[in-house]
């Protein structure tokens, strides 16, 4: 209980700090919204040239884009700022975090929760909901449940990817933008039907890394389409099954990273 109070206090500190920069906050709120809007606009622009991309119509693609946007923005808002671990390591902020009587990861998350991404999350959910409507889905109990669980599972999965790629900074402080290849890159990957990608590239991102089960497969299950790539129908419901191990792996790597930091101090 006491510990939860502490995290609430950290979050409160973040909120009050932001109040000092109302204008900046408003601009960042809008621009974060803008960046997700542009992602969706891009899909519309691409479909101007053709009615079908990778075997899927605009509405069908938008379901994947919306599912991705909702899940990704959820993850980005909660743990996205862990990206800054590089800076925390370089400037020694991590040391100040380590001398407090709280766990490191929740502390970092609540100290700097990026609430400027709030509108973006709302927009992500809106796109997802609009795509659900636009596709005339034949609702069943299973599909209704999936429609709710899928974006959450996607969020958990992307959150794990954020933590995983940020952990790289424990070993490689100068890793720069490499994490973005898998966080933002992963988002771009799942925003389109995975049928568009070349074989080995798709195998790597979709199946080896698990991104294929996050948006594409649940979208197929919601649409009632069979997978042209040949995965069975139950794969549409497998998103939580990749989210759980992803979290476990992320937790493991994070813990190892903290231990590594403590043995090398840099």
């Amino acid at each position: 209980m006491g510990e939860i109070g502490a995290y609430v206090a950290l979050l409160g500190g973040k909120l009050r700090s932001m109040a000092a920069y109302r204008t900046s906050f408003a601009i960042e709120l809008l621009s974060n919204l803008g960046s997700t809007v542009l992602d969706v606009v891009t899909v519309f622009v691409l479909y101007r040239a053709t009615a079908v991309v990778g075997g899927f119509s605009l509405a069908e693609s938008l379901l994947m884009t919306g599912l991705t946007a909702a899940g990704f923005t959820l993850a980005d808002m909660i743990v996205g700022n862990i990206d800054d671990l590089k800076r925390y390591v370089r400037t020694g902020t991590l040391d100040t975090v380590l001398i407090r009587p709280l766990r490191v990861l929740p502390q970092l998350i609540f100290m700097d929760l990026p609430l400027r991404k709030l509108l973006r999350l709302a927009f992500g959910i809106f796109v997802y909901a609009a795509a659900l409507v636009a596709n005339h889905i034949q609702w069943t109990a299973a599909r209704a449940l999936l429609a709710v669980v899928a974006p959450i599972a996607a969020g958990v999965f992307f959150g794990a990817i954020f933590v995983l790629t940020a952990s790289l900074a424990f070993w490689w402080v100068e890793s720069g933008e490499i994490g973005a290849s898998f966080t933002y890159g992963g988002r771009d990957f799942t925003s389109y039907p995975i049928t568009v990608y070349g074989d080995w590239f798709r195998d790597l991102f979709a199946y080896a890394l698990g991104f294929g089960l996050v948006a594409y497969q649940p979208a197929l299950a919601l649409l009632g389409r069979t997978d042209p790539l040949g995965l069975p129908a139950w794969a549409g419901y497998a998103a939580p099954l990749v989210a759980a191990p992803a979290v476990a792996i992320a937790a493991l790597v994070w813990g190892t990273g903290i231990r590594h930091y403590r043995s090398t101090g840099s």
Binding site: A49, T50, V53
Partner: peptide
């Protein structure tokens, strides 16, 4: 890949 998929379906 995305642009090439668009090209594949384009007029």
């Amino acid at each position: 890949y995305v642009l090439l998929a668009v090209a594949a379906g384009a007029v």
